[in-house]
């Protein structure tokens, strides 16, 4: 039992674990919509875009959260509008908008060269850096995301299933997508400290695709993907503590391992003798 409870004597582990469980669950929940819309790359891209925003906020001595969320929100809206109003596909729009934003961050860092240490933590995740303020922000974002998904569940479901048709049926799809972009930007900011910019994309995508292999039900997908994200957040923190590796990397590696087990189960055991029908998600 000491193995389980000993790490909790450290404040950084307590804070980090609360953050990892909430962020893992949040990414698992939001990730369902991202994966089903064929925009799996958006989490990876937006986390990079937010990095650019964070650097700009730092240089202008602006509040980090306000700067980074605004930047991420604008990037998400730009991607949505580019896809809606042009023939450019989602993956190309994500590639252009977010990479340009990341490049801006890199350019500013190389120009000012005085804060590379803290931005290493932003890139790869740093459990030691989770403060009580970060936890309050994560709790606030979790509540906001849960509220939106609970009360706009049907609208989000229809918009994700077929945006154009949902509009005909009176769903305010532009508003729904705008709110979702705002929540997504906030989730990514909340997750940066624990997962790191480079790992958020996987945390958003791996739990939903793992559960998608095992169920054809939308509400079960949402529930189990959230649980998987939270549980891997918790176990990942222990692995990070005992194996002395980055928290983001340990969580993502654990999720990837579970995905491989689910894939093996579906391919070799559940569907033995049958054609394996795995869903294919690509850019829309």
């Amino acid at each position: 039992m000491d193995v389980l409870f000993a790490p909790f004597q450290y404040e950084f582990f307590r804070n980090g674990t609360i953050a990892a469980v909430l962020v893992g669950g949040l990414c698992g929940l939001i990730g369902v919509y991202i994966v089903l819309r064929g925009m799996s790359f958006i989490g990876h891209g937006l986390s990079h875009a937010v990095f650019g925003g964070a650097v700009v906020a730092f240089i202008l001595q602006f509040n980090f959260y306000v700067g980074a969320v605004s930047w991420g929100f604008i990037a998400a809206l730009l991607i949505n509008q580019t896809v809606r109003k042009t023939t450019i596909s989602a993956d190309a729009a994500i590639g252009v908008v977010t990479t340009a934003s990341f490049a801006l961050g890199v350019a500013l860092i190389s120009r000012y060269r005085r804060f590379s240490q803290s931005f290493d933590a932003a890139l790869f995740g740093n459990v030691l850096g989770v403060t009580p303020t970060d936890i309050i922000v994560i709790i606030f974002v979790t509540l906001a995301a849960a509220f939106m998904i609970f009360f706009f569940y049907k609208q989000l479901l229809f918009t994700t299933f077929n945006t154009e048709v949902a509009q005909v049926y009176g769903i305010p799809t532009v508003w729904i997508e705008t709110w979702f972009a705002l929540i997504l930007a906030a989730v990514i900011i909340a997750a940066v400290q624990i997962m790191g910019v480079t790992m958020i994309g996987a945390a958003l995508v791996v739990p939903p695709i793992t559960i998608r292999l095992l169920t054809d039900s939308f509400h079960r997908l949402m529930i189990y993907s959230t649980i998987l994200g939270a549980v891997t957040g918790l176990i990942g923190m222990y692995l990070s503590f005992y194996m002395d590796v980055s928290s983001g990397a340990s969580i993502v590696l654990l999720q990837a391992m579970l995905f491989c087990i689910a894939l093996f189960y579906v391919a070799k055991i559940r569907n033995r003798g049958r054609l394996v029908e795995t869903p294919v998600y690509g850019p829309t």
Binding site: L36, L157, T160, F161, N162, R212, D216, F218, L221
Partner: peptide
């Protein structure tokens, strides 16, 4: 135009 792999 329908995504037949959508879980519904």
């Amino acid at each position: 135009t329908v995504d037949w792999s959508f879980p519904v």
